[in-house]
Design a protein around this nucleic acid. Structure first.
Length: 251
DNA sequence: GCATTAACAGCCG
DNA sequence: CGGCTGTTAATGC
């Protein structure tokens, strides 16, 4: 299990439900739609499977139909550095596909997932013919730019509760990941891998967030109750022994 | 202090 | 039963 395209060695046609899970498919004209559907492939990925690897020539533009993927890169010391998770509805690799270069990240399945692929030639054909498709890709690039800038902020935070809150908010992004909806299927262990904390610490952060009403913890997943609060949360109330708190109480 | 690893019981699908 | 969750104890920076 090493080649990029091997994830599509056991591909099959998409069902109607899977087609509906592809956010850009409805933007195409009948002719464009026909061509896209004829080329789309889908395949299962097991935990640990690579969807694509750094340095391999681009063959597909990928999308998540179900499950959860992880985007990472190997740094100079050889350690893997996780950038983000990719939940259902997310499409990625357009930057590389545009330039027909080699993949710049590793994409791995965190759990059993359904991955769709559009061949890079069809990707370019759609760019050349479909205004709707162009709009989607442009919107996608723009939205992700915001995500990566936010990710830099997240990386510099040393407060684990806020790190978890912001990372969660990113995964609930309705533009980039329209397949997520209100409930994100993710285990606390998977979230720990993505955020770079221990499972126990993530559990504690989630409990705090749930107490504050921005999420609800469910078995094997999380329900968002207040996305804006997640994005901008200042998690800690004044500590009981802090100066500010004493000042408040003495007044 | 605070986060991490290790370990365990209880619960869910 | 296997995997997930919530909690505690011991250890390390």
């Amino acid at each position: 299990m090493t080649s990029d395209a091997s994830v599509f060695q056991r591909r099959r046609p998409l069902t109607a439900a899977e087609l509906n899970a592809i956010p850009w498919i409805g933007l195409l004209s009948p002719t464009e739609y026909e061509r896209a559907v004829a080329d789309l492939k889908i395949s299962d990925a097991s935990p640990g499977d690579y969807i694509c690897r750094t340095g391999r020539p681009v063959t597909y533009w990928f999308g998540v139909v179900g499950g959860l993927l992880k985007m990472s890169s190997d740094n100079v010391e050889g350690h893997a550095m996780t950038f983000t998770g990719v939940p259902p509805g997310g499409w990625f690799g357009e930057g590389t596909a545009l330039k027909r270069e080699t993949y710049r990240y590793n994409i791995q399945a965190l759990r059993k997932s359904l991955v769709a692929g559009l061949h890079v030639d069809t990707f370019h054909w759609l760019l050349d013919h479909s205004i709707g498709f162009n709009r989607f890709v442009m919107n996608q690039l723009n939205e992700r730019l915001g995500q990566f800038i936010a990710a830099r902020e997240i990386d510099r935070m040393n407060n684990p509760d806020i790190r978890v809150a912001r990372s969660l908010a990113a995964l609930f992004n309705p533009v980039l990941y329209p397949g997520v909806g209100e409930v994100l299927r993710i285990t606390q262990q998977e979230l720990a891998y993505l955020v770079g904390l221990s499972r126990q610490r993530v559990n504690e952060a989630l409990t705090t967030l749930a107490e504050q009403g921005s999420i609800r913890i469910e078995y094997g997943g999380l329900r968002v109750l207040d996305l804006a609060a997640l994005r901008s949360s200042v998690v800690y109330p004044p500590r009981p022994d802090s100066r500010a708190c004493r000042a408040l109480n003495s007044g």
